[in-house]
């Protein structure tokens, strides 16, 4: 009886899952000849706003906002979704630090559908009100700002904030007390570490660089991953074969985009079991990630069509659907 606080939310999400795109719908979207036809197709399915016009970015942005509006509306406790919202929050921090240091203002670089929207983040950093930021974010913001002001090294600043974001995600997962959220957070951090290893190998970065960029997590050993990355891409794939990310080894050998796709599909696969749960936060997380994946897939297809990419190249990047 004590774990019934998500009953209303899960039932509402069940009703909303009906409108998620299935593989068949994505197939129909792929069959559209042009990006405009594709955009009209998704708008006929209820995407975007009547007043929003037919701009692809506006439609996709509106869909992201709608998803968070639903989650905010149904979730009894938003703190469990920190693992999903932190990337946006830390992106805003990164953008605000750079805007303050360069004293330039670039429109549209902030996310507004998170706890601290862009304008507020910019004000906090400008006024150096770091105590207004949650958890360790204030300390990281101060360090990143000082580092960028003194060294003008944008990459170093990015690494500091990105690593802090990964640590915060891991910590938020542990703090949530929900196994599915903890698992999601751990997988997110592990996949980010693997991507860092692959990119660091391609750009010839040192072990110390990787150590400063990667975050500790349960499912991947950072030191072993760094050693593998220093030895070569094949070694990374071989290391992954010995972890719970074994399936990603083949994808990594195939191409970076295949690996990215595998990462998203693995997450969807993990969350699919939540479709049968009635009393936990799992279905809410499943829906949220499913919507993000859906929007990402539609963006890939429409952008591919806009730029005249062949269907096969687009198909390779399409994610598995949740329903």
């Amino acid at each position: 009886m004590s774990n019934t606080k998500y009953t209303y939310a899960v039932a509402r999400i069940r009703a909303l899952e009906v409108s998620l795109f299935s593989d068949a719908v994505i197939g129909q979207l792929l069959a559209c000849r042009t990006a405009e036809e594709g955009l009209r197709f998704v708008m006929e399915k209820g995407w975007g706003d009547v007043s929003g016009g037919v701009d692809m970015d506006a439609v996709l942005k509106r869909e992201e906002e709608k998803t968070w509006e639903v989650i905010r509306d149904v979730a009894p406790d938003m703190s469990v979704f920190d693992v999903v919202s932190y990337p946006k929050l830390y992106h805003n921090l990164k953008a605000a630090v750079k805007e303050v240091c360069t004293e330039k203002r670039t429109p549209g670089i902030f996310y507004d559908d998170c706890d601290i929207p862009g304008s507020e983040m910019l004000r906090i950093i400008e006024n150096r009100e770091f105590s207004k930021l949650p958890g360790n974010m204030g300390r990281v913001a101060e360090e990143a700002l000082e580092t960028l002001l003194h060294t003008r090294d944008g990459q170093l600043c990015d690494i500091m904030i990105d690593k802090a974001a990964l640590d915060a995600i891991c910590e938020a997962g542990r703090r949530s007390g929900e196994p599915i959220i903890e698992n999601y957070a751990d997988t997110t951090v592990a996949i980010a570490d693997i991507k860092i290893a692959v990119r660091s190998h391609k750009t010839g970065k040192s072990g110390d660089f990787m150590r400063s960029a990667m975050a500790e997590c349960r499912s991947v050993n950072v030191e072993q991953l760094i050693r593998a990355a220093l030895a070569g891409e094949e070694e990374i794939a071989r290391y992954l074969e010995g972890t719970s990310y074994a399936g990603g080894a083949d994808a990594l050998r195939e191409s970076p985009s295949a690996f990215e796709r595998w990462c998203d599909n693995r997450m969807t696969e993990t969350l699919k079991t939540q479709k049968y749960d009635t009393f936990s936060v799992g279905p809410l997380l499943g829906y949220l990630i499913a919507r993000e994946n859906e929007i990402k897939t539609v963006r890939i297809i429409l952008t591919g069509k806009q730029n005249g990419f062949p269907d096969d190249a687009v198909r390779e990047r399409i994610r598995e659907m949740y329903v």
Binding site: T7, Y8, A9, V10, A11, R12, A15
Partner: peptide, 21 residues
Amino acid sequence: AIGVGIAGQAASGVVTEDPSK
């Protein structure tokens, strides 16, 4: 009372999105 209450929460969730049910 508890049982109908739990089911009622779920029912409200569904009717919020789809009153036809």
